[in-house]
Design a protein around this nucleic acid. Structure first.
Lengths: 202, 202
DNA sequence: CAGAAAATTGCGGGTCCCGCATATTTGCGG
DNA sequence: CCGCAAATATGCGGGACCCGCAATTTTCTG
């Protein structure tokens, strides 16, 4: 990857992160595209070269995370069973990066409250889900590679990918509502799925 | 439900159906809100009283379908195991209604091609997925009622609902790509999930 | 049938999103 | 090291969207 490509990724990440920070702080409709562009040091027109909407900019962080999950899954030990490899590959990707830890950390409560409000915006929910759907094929490819199945001709890897993302979404929602640790929720969701989701005690 | 409520539902359905028909025929960005409103016999402003965007109007059909799935699930025989009740409750909801069969049926190939194009529009993908997420809680409630679990305090019914919708989505995609019958794809997806999605032959 | 409640409509304006043309930056070969 | 070609950033303009608000019409209720 040349310097050109690298810089593009940086701009993209800067825009996405700026969008999230501003929207969490101020609320979705009190942030204009112009604000985000200024914060990231580019022109408003350039924002729309990278993202088709504010919501897409926000969701792109989620998109990247899932792509990293797919990569992480490929790099798990070769012999490891699929359902053992999945939890760590997923949970890893939630460690906060430098752009978070470097900043003067805002009040935790305030941040989560702002996050909740942001995720309540219809357009953001929609784009976040779409980001998942976009990355689903990458995840399916990684799963296919692990299990010797072909995503283009078999349902299996696609179904696992879709299901895993559904689990992630349920865990995320649970985290927002109950504040239980996210990693525990993810592990529990995957456990139930790999057990075939049997109805309790019957 | 009074006459008032009924009429609102009719208008809503008329708008959604008009949006779909026009967009499938002409393409997403060659259909204005004004066109849809005219087709349904209301003013453009009224369109936005019902839907926040063109995409939401399109997706509302999906939303209704999932709500009907939840209702159908509640009406399955009492003793029937959950994973036996799900496939028929879901598949039922794809029978074409009168608004489809009454119209002079357009060319089948052309229709599917238009549908594919419509579903390729990012905004429509996003809103369709969000419609699923919206109806997910209704589905979870129905599942909770069947299995004696509480969606507010337990992960199980929410996880099943999310997973079932993921299966539906994979089946739908498979249908779009391969033209295999949808009901078979749904049954197969649910079967694999209830079996715990084991990797093949190992 | 009259009054209240609800739905429809028109208008106005801020924002978005994109096409297009231009300017600027980057990478590359000589 | 230089200048050319490709990629990227920017400015401008306009069509469409989306929503608040207030006025009008329709529907329900007693």
């Amino acid at each position: 990857m040349g310097l050109r490509e690298r810089k593009k990724q940086e701009t993209r990440a800067a825009l996405s992160w700026a969008a999230i920070r501003l929207i969490v702080a101020r609320g979705y409709d009190k942030v204009l595209v112009e604000d985000i562009a200024t914060e990231a040091g580019v022109s408003p027109r350039t924002f729309n070269n990278y993202f088709g909407s504010k919501a897409e900019a926000v969701a792109s962080r989620h998109l990247d995370r899932i792509h990293r999950m797919a990569d992480a899954l490929r790099e798990r030990p070769a012999g490891e069973p699929l359902w053992d490899a999945l939890p760590p590959a997923m949970i890893e990707q939630f460690r906060p990066g430098p752009e978070v830890t470097s900043q003067p950390r805002p009040d935790r409560e305030e941040w989560v409250a702002g996050l909740r409000l942001m995720m309540a915006v219809p357009a953001i929910q929609a784009e976040t889900l779409r980001a998942g759907a976009m990355a689903q094929s990458a995840l399916a490819a990684a799963i296919g590679a692990r299990t010797g199945t072909d995503p283009d001709n078999e349902m299996y890897p696609n179904l696992v990918a879709a299901t895993v993302l559904a689990a992630l979404e349920v865990a995320n929602t649970g985290f927002m509502l109950t504040k239980q640790p996210l990693d525990g929720l993810i592990r529990e969701a995957l456990r139930q799925i790999s057990a075939g989701l049997p109805p309790p005690q019957q």
